[in-house]
Design a protein around this nucleic acid. Structure first.
Lengths: 336, 336
DNA sequence: TTGTACGCGTTATCAA
DNA sequence: TTGATAACGCGTACAA
């Protein structure tokens, strides 16, 4: 069964293409009767208006692009889940792009999206702290952009983030109150805004409780599973921390693994708290104290914001910032 | 900065639109010199060929659609990750759709994709065992379809699956060898092919070792976290199994949670093994014995198969079946 | 090597 | 209420 086009359908019904076209749009004038007839025939002959022709004509794609650093990641898949729900309810489709934390890919994706393929972009930026000003040359066109979670601070675009500073402060404070004095901060890229903000919370909590800052305890990790294992084992043995605060989920897991391998007892010898959206954190050994971001909700808010920009451009300020609240959930990994 | 079109760029360069067009296509004749000039000017003026116009003209979208039951799920996000990598390397974009295990949504997505929006579809089917013959009326058009993991057995389309029967047999056998006699099989939808296949492995393993089959031990669960908790706690208390084999990851987690709440000791009182792609299964309490599917690889294979269908249609048989091997990884949850 | 002209399938404008 | 027609932006015969 071939795809037929509007002409063929029109001919089959002895109608003009305009009339057929009208049957598929809600606003136009068309008699109830002919409309029904057309829709019935369309179903019968399996006709659907060609998407590309429509979009070319209407100059919009009913598609939004979502760019994330990685796909196989709890947080991002939950966020995408949230975005998808909103998009579907609006009749929009979503294109997915993964940068693998590669800035070049990010730039390339963004550039190529400026060809009409998408009506808007939702992005969590790549991990490399490169120069994001390339966005300035672009975003003034009518391709709205919304950031979520990982943002470029100096780029003017609406964003949905969480209260990273406060939750990092709270997490660090929690470790201190549980008796930790040598608290390591684990980060993937401390130049990225999110790494910096979370670190500031860590630093300020230390200061508040009069704990001297030791910059050896700020440990720069990688995206490589293997390398992180080496780095962390080395760190645990050399620096002998009694607490660890990880700025991303993966590093909490890496810490667990390193401790298992070294025979370091959590929480007796080392207390661990980390950012994590893992639903089964309670099932870990020991159950993991987490700073849990409302990942799905972040996606929902980001998508809603983007649709607001699409539907009522004037109501959204480019400095708009939605801050959602993360929760510190205390579990066994930080028990006394 | 507005988007400019090919006409404006041509005018700016004092060239014809065809010449400009040629500069963006590799095959056509065009002097090195003019080509460079055009590309430079394009960059300067931020010109990109309009995607919808190109696609309308060329009758293909360089886009594939991926339909999955859910997004916030380890297995599927890893599979999508695999698909994305292959697609990107081919210069293709991917559209993502989540059915939420709703058959109606699946049908709707598939139907709507037959409007030129995508050149092919990769799908893991929705969880409801409805009538999939709707696909027969469609897939003969030139919109290639590849199934992965969850498939419709009676629909003729290439598929990428894992050796579910064998690994289920192996998992059940492992439980038996560890001393289990009353082994429960947990499934979400036992009418779905995947649920059936995995159950057959379970049944045959029981039979091989002369363990009588008790159909109360086949427990139909849901997608609701709360309901599963009730079902499982009830099951544990009433049926007193000494082993549990779960056909999907989520039910293994639910089992853990129920056991924690009831104070049932794993593995002493109950041994657990489940299908799961969770990378941190070793970190669970206790570490979880898993049947681990090569999720990313499945995505890669499915995408590769689809591209083969797009590039050399005749070389792919519609009955083609790629079977990848899952691994049974023994951990503490089934220790003696 | 470059330019002219047409058509991809649709929708909006205008006329009937 | 319906039909004829032009235009959306591009790519490719064909002509130059």
């Amino acid at each position: 069964m071939r795809n037929i086009n509007i002409k063929e359908l029109a001919k089959a019904l002895n109608l003009s293409t305009s009339t057929v076209s009208r049957a598929f749009r809600d606003n136009s004038d068309i008699s109830r009767e002919t409309k029904d007839k057309i829709l019935a025939a369309a179903k019968e002959l399996n006709y659907q208006p060609n998407h590309y022709a429509s979009n070319l004509r209407e100059q919009r794609s009913k598609t939004i692009a979502v760019i994330v650093p990685e796909l196989a990641n709890n947080f991002f898949s939950q966020a995408i889940h949230g975005i998808e729900g909103v998009a579907r309810s609006k009749g929009y489709h979503i294109l997915i792009y993964a940068t693998d934390d590669d800035f070049e890919k990010e730039v390339s994706f963004i550039r190529h999206l400026h060809n009409g393929r998408a009506d808007g972009i939702i992005m969590s930026v790549s991990g490399e702290g490169n120069d994001p000003t390339y966005l300035n040359g672009l975003n003034n066109k009518r391709l709205p952009l919304v950031f979520f979670d990982r943002v470029y601070e100096d780029i003017s675009a609406p964003r949905v983030i969480t209260n990273d500073y406060e939750s990092s402060f709270a997490a660090t404070q929690h470790l201190i109150k549980q008796g930790c004095q040598r608290i390591a901060y684990l980060v993937i890229n401390k130049n990225l805004s999110i790494g910096k903000t979370r670190m500031q919370g860590y630093l300020d909590a230390l200061e508040k409780y009069g704990i001297p800052f030791d910059d050896h305890l700020v440990v720069d990790c990688t995206n490589s599973y293997r390398k992180n294992g080496q780095i962390l084992k080395h760190m645990l043995q050399e620096l002998k921390p009694d607490g660890v605060f990880t700025s991303v989920e993966r590093l909490a897991f890496a810490t667990y693994t390193a401790c298992h391998e070294l025979g370091v007892q959590i929480p007796e010898q080392l207390k661990v708290v980390g950012f994590s959206s893992l639903e089964i954190a309670p099932l870990l050994n020991p159950s993991l104290t987490t700073v849990t971001q409302p990942a799905t909700r972040i996606g929902v808010e980001a998508a809603s914001l983007l649709f607001k920009m699409l539907e009522q451009p004037d109501t959204v300020n480019s400095n708009e910032k939605i801050v959602l609240v993360s929760r510190l959930i205390k579990r066994r990994s930080t028990a006394v």
